[in-house]
Amino acid sequence: MKQDTIRKFVSLGLLLILLVVFSLTSEYFLTPANIFTLLREASIIGIVSIGVTFCIITAGTDFSTGANVALVSMICANFLYYTGLPVFIVLLIGVLSGAAAGCVNGFLVARLRLPDFIATLSTQGVFRGLTFVFAIRSATGVISNKVITNPDFLLLNGDIGGLYYSTIAFFVLAVIGQLVLKRTKLGTYTYAVGADRKASEFSGINIGRVKIAAFLISGICSAVGGIFLFAKLGSAIPDLGIGLEFDVIAAVVVGGCAFSGGRGDVFGSVLGSVFLVVLVNGLYKLQMHVSYQLIIKGAIIILMTIFDSVYMDLMSKYSRGKSPRAGEAVSGGAQ
């Protein structure tokens, strides 16, 4: 069985167990209100995780998502506060700035050849710093977390019969993301680059472009998620989204993506986001110490990535037929 299929089954199983346990121990758990709230939270992590899924499938990562969320929110806040531009335009600007951030990441990785994790860890600092630069300040220069009261903007918080817009957006984007991944040329190339970089090169795939596309998608997803988060909070605080990147990566890992690349998909990350949110919410309802979240998330990431490594090792050992001989399989054969 494929690695990501097994992992999805395991995660789904764990999720079901969690749902059962939590609904038994807390009577408020399975109420519609709670479910919709849960989904709303999952949407924000989830929307961002759609983009990060692309990055991880290319055997890369994106650690700048949290900072990107904050930056986009701050930029939107500035436009909403200082200008009278229609909300729709402001949101567009926000998404574009998220895309620009993604391009920066793409440039660092594709052109300057920085390793993904260093590039995005650095841009995390840069974007977070820029958020502070753009922070709305009062006359004395102190950061004032101005609450945005623009009613058109606050529409984003609306819902249809309880189901929040953000959740709808999440599922729509997830479907689009999955289709792009599975049905487009870009999606095929994304998997190819992650699974075997060399072979992709030989087949004429432009690796740089695929990486840049992945970061672009991640940047846009961070922007959309960030906008919903901003709308939910009502004000753009510079600390927005701290720790989000870790949650997003946890969601993608739980969803079955392997860091070695070439495996996993968006639906898995949807599962992972829901799982994470249910876990956190359940722990909270069980009144467990809030630090357990970090501990459990960290442990899950470690355990699942170890599993991936072991499983794929076993798979390659038992693959049908003979494998190319170790020492003598020199490319180009005999001289």
Partner: peptide, 29 residues
Amino acid sequence: IAANFNVPPFLITLASLNLVYGVAQLVTN
């Protein structure tokens, strides 16, 4: 983990960063 499994060290230690931090928070409340 780094020696025996094919897991990138940045990921192990990033997860550990959060895990250990959580433990410290827990113990010191």
